[in-house]
Write a protein that binds this DNA or RNA. Structure first.
Lengths: 214, 214
DNA sequence: ACCGTTCCCTAACAAGTGTTAGGTAGGTTA
DNA sequence: TAACCTACCTAACACTTGTTAGGGAACGGT
C-alpha cells in the first residue's frame, strides 16, 4: 500500500473532480457494495478486488468512479452522518422534555440503523482509528456533538427531576450510547423486530429497569 | 499475505513445538505488546513489523517465539477466554438466585475487562469474522456457552418473578451483553472508576432503570 | 577450550496490495 | 459518418505483506 503522498483534503465534501463524469446512481450502487464488504470484513481487511468482485466489475474499474479506496470509505461515512444529523437535529429542535428527547433520540437511532446498517457497523469498527486522521476529522466533530446532545439531555433530566441523580451521567451516557449502536452488529432489516419495536423494548429496559418493582 | 496452506490445527491449545525452546516469560511480554497493537489498530491493519517495533526487536525475530501472526492472536484470545470462564464457572456454580447471578456475572465481567482490556477489545472487534474459521472454533463455542449462561439466568429470573416478563429475553440479553463488553473500548485501568464501581453503576441502571420512580 | 542453548539479526522470498496508463466497445450527439 | 462520452478491461507499476534460511553473539555447563 503506497502511503498517499498526494495532497487530498476532501473531508467528505467536494472531491477533486476528474475529467470524466461518472453517474451518481452507479456510484451509489458501488458504494453500497463496498459498504457491505467493509462491514463484513473490516476496512483494512477488505481488498478493492473483493469490492469489485462483489459489484461485478474489475478492480481497476472502480477508479473510474472513485479516486481511492479511502474516498469510498469517506463517502460512505459522511453520507451516513449527514442523514443521521438531519434526524437528530429535528428531534433536538422539537423542544421536548428530557425523557421524551431520549425516547425520540433512541427511536431515531434504531431507524438509522435500520436504514444504514452497513455504514453504522463500519462506523463502530473504524471510527476510533479514523477520527485521528485529518481527512476524517468530521468523525471527531460528530462524536462531540453526539456527546453534547445525549449527555446534555441526561443532565437536564436529572436537574428537572425525571432521571435519578445517583447515577454518574457520563457513565450512563456511555452505556446508553454503546448499547444503542452496537445493535447494528446483530440487527438484520426485515427481521423479527422492526426498529420501533426494538426502540420500545430498549427504552423500557433503560428507563424502568429489568427488575420487578416492589 | 500468503494464504496459510499448511495444515495447522492448534485451536488455542498445543502448538507444533519447534526444535527450540523459547522462554514462556518472554512469550508473555511479546504477546502483551502484540495485544496492545491489535487492540489499537485492529488485527489485519497491524503488521508484524509494528508489533516487533513496539516490543523492541525486529520482525523476523518474532518467529523464534511464534510460528505466525495468527497464532499470536490465537494465544491472546484463548488465554483470555480460559481465564474468563474460570471466573464465570465459579459464579455459575455458586447456586445464587437469578438477580444475584446477574450481579455477579456483571461484576466479574468488568473485572475481566480491567485485567484483559486489550484482549477484550480484540475479541469485540474480530470475533465475528474469526469464529467462522476452524482454528478459532472455540470462539463460537464460547459464544454459545455465554448465551446459555446469561439468557438462562434472565429466563429463570422471569420464571421466579424477579425480572419483568414483558421484556423480550433474547433482546434483553443482547443489550446487557453488548453494554458490558463494549466498555472495554473506553475503559482505562487505573482511571476514575474501578471495575467494581462501574459494575455497581451499571447494575443500578439496568436493574432499576434511569427514570425516577413515581 | 568446546559444545549447546537461547535469542536476536540480516537479507531475502513470493504473494498480495492499492493504483494507474492506455485501450476499447457501445451509445449519443453533431 | 465523425466526434464524443461513458463505463469498463488489460496489464502492468511500486510497494508492503507475512515468513524463512542462515548466521552470530552471549552465556552456562562440562
Amino acid at each position: 500500500m503506497p502511503t498517499d503522498s498526494k495532497p487530498r483534503k476532501t473531508g467528505g465534501k467536494s472531491q477533486k473532480k476528474p475529467a470524466v463524469t461518472p453517474s451518481p446512481a452507479r456510484r451509489r450502487e458501488l458504494l453500497a457494495a463496498a459498504a457491505e464488504v467493509f462491514a463484513a470484513h473490516g476496512y483494512s481487511a477488505t481488498t478493492v478486488r473483493r469490492i469489485a468482485e462483489e459489484a461485478g466489475l474489475l478492480a481497476g474499474s472502480l477508479y473510474y468512479h472513485f479516486d481511492s479506496k479511502e474516498s469510498m470509505l469517506d463517502e460512505i461515512l459522511s453520507t451516513f452522518l449527514d442523514e443521521l444529523w438531519a434526524g437528530y437535529d429535528a428531534v433536538l429542535a422539537a423542544g421536548l422534555g428530557p425523557r421524551e428527547t431520549i425516547e425520540a433520540l433512541v427511536t431515531e437511532s434504531f431507524r438509522e440503523i435500520d436504514r444504514h446498517r452497513a455504514a453504522v457497523a463500519i462506523y463502530q469498527n473504524e471510527s476510533r482509528q479514523l477520527a485521528a486522521r485529518p481527512r476524517f476529522g468530521y468523525l471527531a466533530d460528530s462524536q462531540r456533538r453526539f456527546e453534547k446532545a445525549w449527555l446534555g439531555t441526561l443532565e437536564r433530566g436529572v436537574a428537572e427531576g425525571v432521571f435519578r441523580p445517583e447515577l454518574d451521567a457520563r457513565l450512563t451516557y456511555r452505556f446508553v450510547r454503546d448499547t444503542v449502536w452496537v445493535a447494528a452488529s446483530w440487527y438484520r432489516p426485515g427481521g423479527h423486530h422492526g426498529p420501533e419495536e426494538i426502540a420500545r423494548q430498549y427504552l423500557s429496559m433503560v428507563l424502568d429497569g429489568i427488575a420487578v418493582r416492589d
